[in-house]
Write a protein that binds this DNA or RNA. Structure first.
Lengths: 242, 242
DNA sequence: GACAAACTTATTCAGCTGACCAATTATCCC
DNA sequence: GGGATAATTGGTCAGCTGAATAAGTTTGTC
């Protein structure tokens, strides 16, 4: 094993190809675990999806469980990066603005990465050591962030005054379900919910339901195809006409 | 192989114990398929959960797929019965009342039978013959009922005027997700979302978000109320509190 | 008691499971 | 270039799981 024996002889930096294969394995594992659950997914299947030899997954990861943990870490890191990159200046904006923006970005993330929610539903069904690890390491921090924002928004009168717990789970389900069962929606309706327009429409629907009709000046919605030129400043979506 | 005799002699009525074991197998299959998906679930496991011999499942059902179909038929029949029993006089009431009532009853059903949504999410992830069968036989009729009600409610100004497709999936996710991942919620928050009070609170949350804050009289509000001068006539949702 | 429905027991056997390892190749550092 | 090490390969392992069925036993009904 690589031991930094005598001098400060630095351990070799990991080679680029190793970084690549690791990443490909993690991505394949993510898809497999999200699809089939921990027990249903097999290391062979994962290796095949990743296009690598099966022995490699034991080489790079100690076993199936560490691989699962790496996959979970990966998708949550992606989620945090998504928000960090797209919800700027969190400290500055008021709660209302932040929540509106985050919800919209959350819709986009859920559409681009349905694995997150598929995986969470696979694991959320049964308690156990994996779920414990998952909740303590990733879910709880996000939950506290989410409910904090919700409480702020409630104080501002932006969202209904119901227990934040319920609003939190309500929101997750409302946002993610369409994309989790996107193939079903496609067969049922003939429309692909992953089209950019459909994603935007879903974000609009969520916003309309959660925050009420997006109006600051009481423009009448719903009656005629009246153009809505006045968009609230805090909602960065482009004005869309129907 | 015991074949049903096709002679002129009348077939015997199925014995009661056979009806019972069939039902127990179907219930066990429902739980297993919802938990593990079609491929992940095993007939051995199902037989064990049902407390019957594994050979019986091949005897009563022709194989794994017919068993799955029986389980799906069962849960959807239960859903229809639930609505039929609890949403009376569908023809009389106006769309608003019906939708309010159905949403609330839907929350109760989702809490009592999370298998439905677990199963739908397992199957909704990938297209294929099973999903096709499922959509054609069960999902599409419900979808048309749901979107019909939504459209009516939109005409009455009860819910935001967004595409019914999005409202439909939004609603399903919002209602069901909390109960699908109930164990996660329990570990995360220490509270059990299956308590009667929690179920009611979730129904309240859904109603508040979807229909606006609860109005005092439970009486029907059929037409757009003109009482509120601060609110435009075309939007009957009461304003959120400031 | 006759006879079929309902159920049990005991197989079958192909294929897959995660883990592990010895041999091989690619890459790095001197 | 060459030695060392990281990265990768192919293969083995021992055991388990899969659905299905054949043959035998109990139970209920006529």
């Amino acid at each position: 094993m690589a031991m930094r024996s005598t001098t400060a002889a630095a351990e070799r930096a990991p080679q680029q190809r190793a970084v690549d294969t690791r990443a490909r394995i993690v991505q394949a594992a993510l898809a497999a675990f999200a699809d089939l659950g921990f027990d249903g997914a097999t290391t062979r299947d994962i290796a095949e999806r990743a296009g690598v030899n099966q022995g490699l997954i034991t080489y790079h990861f100690a076993g199936k469980l560490p691989l699962w943990q790496a996959a979970v870490d990966e998708i949550f890191a992606t989620l945090r990066a998504h928000f960090a990159a797209r919800v700027p200046a969190l400290a500055d904006a008021d709660a209302a603005t932040r929540l509106r923006l985050m919800v919209r970005q959350y819709v986009h993330f859920a559409a681009a990465h349905p694995e997150l929610h598929r995986l969470m539903m696979q694991e959320g069904k049964h308690d156990g050591p994996r779920m414990q690890w998952l909740v303590d390491r990733h879910v709880r921090p996000l939950y506290q962030l989410s409910t904090g924002l919700i409480a702020d928004a409630q104080r501002a009168g932006l969202v209904p005054d119901v227990p934040p717990l319920h609003l939190h789970y309500l929101l997750i389900g409302a946002v993610a379900h369409l994309f989790v069962v996107a193939p079903e929606c496609r067969r049922l309706t003939g429309r692909d919910p992953l089209r950019a327009a459909a994603i935007e429409a879903h974000a609009d629907a969520i916003s309309a339901v959660l925050f009420g009709p997006a109006v600051v000046p009481p423009a009448r919605r719903r009656v005629a195809p009246k153009k809505r030129k006045t968009q609230i400043a805090t909602d960065p979506r482009p004005p869309r006409r129907r």
